[in-house]
């Protein structure tokens, strides 16, 4: 196995295998809960964005990329899908029966241990994670892993660049204030850092040579993902060197007492079906719009 990348920058991504909630793929039980056996699993959408962010480091800085996930053997497929996105040089599956029933804190413990097992003594400069998982929605695993690693945590990142000389990262964070308006905050931090990627992140490459590198690595990613097992390491509690008391159910302080359906808020709007071919109805709509707009001319 030959590595095409330099060791100037080492990055890792933590990802999650999640149910595919798209229509035609998802199944529900009669009581409205998810039928996991019948529902296809895919790399979570936020994990995919985190993988894209790691790929940016590979294209722009020639970074070495490792991807890790905690889960049963089937979670391998998430690693394969992530490798396709970021041309990973190394894949980690943290799998052990002892991990079952883990909450975010216990998961973070495993992921922290995993990062330290990345080739090259675990000296990872940037760890990427998604914003949250589509099945858990807590958004806690990332920050907790950062805390356990002792890395500077940067959340909601939509763009970042690394100065390889000074070994600083400069990142843009998209901050929403009570949902009213967005602020773009630019921050700088010394490596290593933990970056949680905002859903609106999009990698951008602005020279021909970067674009060519992008194509080259993407192609490499496709051929690697076809043989992903060559890159895969499966690690259990012992191999990760974790205290069993800190993982799985025993390591999870969270108690889920009961899950209730969120009651649907009563709609305050009245709706009426308008027939697009009915001239009278359309005239009435136009008249109403005119009234609402206070006589403003619609152009």
């Amino acid at each position: 196995m030959t590595s095409t990348t330099t060791k100037d920058l080492n990055v890792a991504v933590i990802v999650k295998l999640e149910p595919d909630f798209s229509e035609g793929n998802v199944s529900y039980n009669a009581d409205g809960t998810l039928n996991r056996a019948e529902t296809k699993s895919i790399l979570g959408p936020h994990s995919a964005i985190a993988s894209n962010a790691a790929f940016y480091a590979k294209v722009k800085y020639g970074a070495r990329v490792a991807v890790g996930t905690m889960g049963p053997p089937i979670a391998e497929s998430a690693l394969q899908q992530a490798q396709l996105l970021c041309d990973a040089d190394e894949l980690h599956l943290y799998s052990d029966r002892l991990f079952a029933g883990a909450d975010t804190l216990a998961t973070a413990e495993v992921l922290k241990a995993g990062v330290s097992k990345v080739e090259g003594d675990g000296k990872v400069d940037i760890v990427f994670s998604g914003h949250r998982a589509s099945d858990g929605e807590t958004g806690q695993t990332g920050p907790q892993t950062a805390w356990k690693l002792g890395y500077t945590f940067l959340g909601h990142v939509i763009d970042y660049n690394v100065d390889l000389q000074s070994r600083f990262v400069r990142a843009k964070r998209l901050i929403s204030l009570q949902g009213f308006y967005d602020i773009l905050e630019e921050v700088e931090a010394p490596l290593p850092v933990f970056i949680s990627i905002d859903p609106s992140y999009k990698a951008f490459f602005n020279t021909v040579s970067q674009r060519l590198a992008f194509e080259k690595y993407q192609k490499e990613a496709r051929s690697r993902a076809e043989n992903y097992k060559q890159f895969l390491k499966v690690l259990n509690t012992q191999q990760l060197g974790i205290d069993p008391k800190l993982v799985g159910l025993p390591g999870s302080p969270t108690i889920v007492y009961k899950v209730e359906r969120i009651p649907k808020a009563k709609a305050s709007r009245k709706s009426e079906v308008i027939d697009g071919a009915n001239r009278d109805q359309l005239t009435r709509v136009a008249a109403n719009m005119y009234e609402v707009l206070g006589g403003m001319v619609i152009k």
Binding site: E23, G24, N25, V26, S27, Y28, A30, G32
Partner: peptide, 12 residues
């Protein structure tokens, strides 16, 4: 819920 379940089941 039953409507939703049926819709997904038929699509699938």
């Amino acid at each position: 819920e039953e409507q939703l379940r049926t819709r997904f089941a038929v699509s699938k």
